[in-house]
Design a protein around this nucleic acid. Sequence first.
DNA 1: CCTACCGATCGGTAGG
DNA 2: CCTACCGATCGGTAGG
Lengths: 196, 196
Amino acid sequence: MSSVKEQPIHPRESILNAAVHLFAEFGYNGTTMRDIAKQVGVLPGSLYAHISGKDELLSTIVESGIAKFLGIIHEIEASDAPADVRMRNAIKAHVATVAENPERTLVVFHQWRFLPEPARARAVELRRDYAQAFFQILEAGVADGTFRKPLDARFAIFSILGALNWVPEWYSPQGSKDADTIGNAVADTLIKGLMA
Amino acid sequence: MSSVKEQPIHPRESILNAAVHLFAEFGYNGTTMRDIAKQVGVLPGSLYAHISGKDELLSTIVESGIAKFLGIIHEIEASDAPADVRMRNAIKAHVATVAENPERTLVVFHQWRFLPEPARARAVELRRDYAQAFFQILEAGVADGTFRKPLDARFAIFSILGALNWVPEWYSPQGSKDADTIGNAVADTLIKGLMA
DNA sequence: CCTACCGATCGGTAGG
DNA sequence: CCTACCGATCGGTAGG
């Protein structure tokens, strides 16, 4: 047994990590299998012993990524906290999950459209479920008087999800504020608004 | 003189329109010059009598698009309305500009990263100017007590711009609400928040 | 605006 | 995991 921490490298994992990084920076169509192979440190043909193709890389990343976001929101949705607290927790959990891996989130929420069917349709449905969870929290809060009745709840939800979907575009792990602080700042903006 | 309204078709314009449509749907790297030629109704080689290359199509679309958004925000920034009214006008003007041509906006705010240098650096700078205008309105409102002092103004601005950048992803010209109503709904969410 | 074509590069495979 | 290679497709050009 070695005393240094062993980091058993599963080839499939390193391929997926390279793909996340490159898809995030150059987009799915701007990344070639040769780019991924170079990042992993093997020759292009060698990738195919571990994955079936470029599509599969994207669908694996997107589906496991959305699943992660969905698991978190469903936990919060089920809690018995007041609606404004649940909304804040949902926003903070989203920001925290982005902070955990901003590149993965960028791929999950911006590259899913390049999935081939039927994976694309599955992604659309899972994304709709995610939006629906926020919608439920909003509706519950409107029903019990916590939230004001918005002009149209859909546009409020689109605004919130838009703000959240954009987080990985500006979030920097090198920034001075931690994910919790940022989550609270975003939640303040969306829940309390700008007005004094 | 013909009595029917003449619509002189400038070949360069129809190429740009086709490029906007295809770049919005399939992304810059997911669109080929052959796709654009087919949409225009010419053979691929014929495009090059009117444009210098694929890069130039993207940079023309992005630069004129950002210029449009910048012109509008600068007009609003200069007005002497209270900060909350200026912020609402800025949000509404953004939504109205998206509604005018959602596909163009999708290209302007999501495909600029595929520009070659130095066009990419120019786009980054113009986008920063756009963000800066929103920042100024927020700071002015905080200074005169219209807005509460946010935890960190940057995160409030990122949230607002994220919500706005996402509008072309969900805006539908076939929807039942007009752009003005949608602009007010988005502005309500961002300025007044969700709380009752 | 078309015909005809270019060198480069793509995702992926056969065989070891 | 490498060597060697495939058919397809890419952005773009020459010449008319």
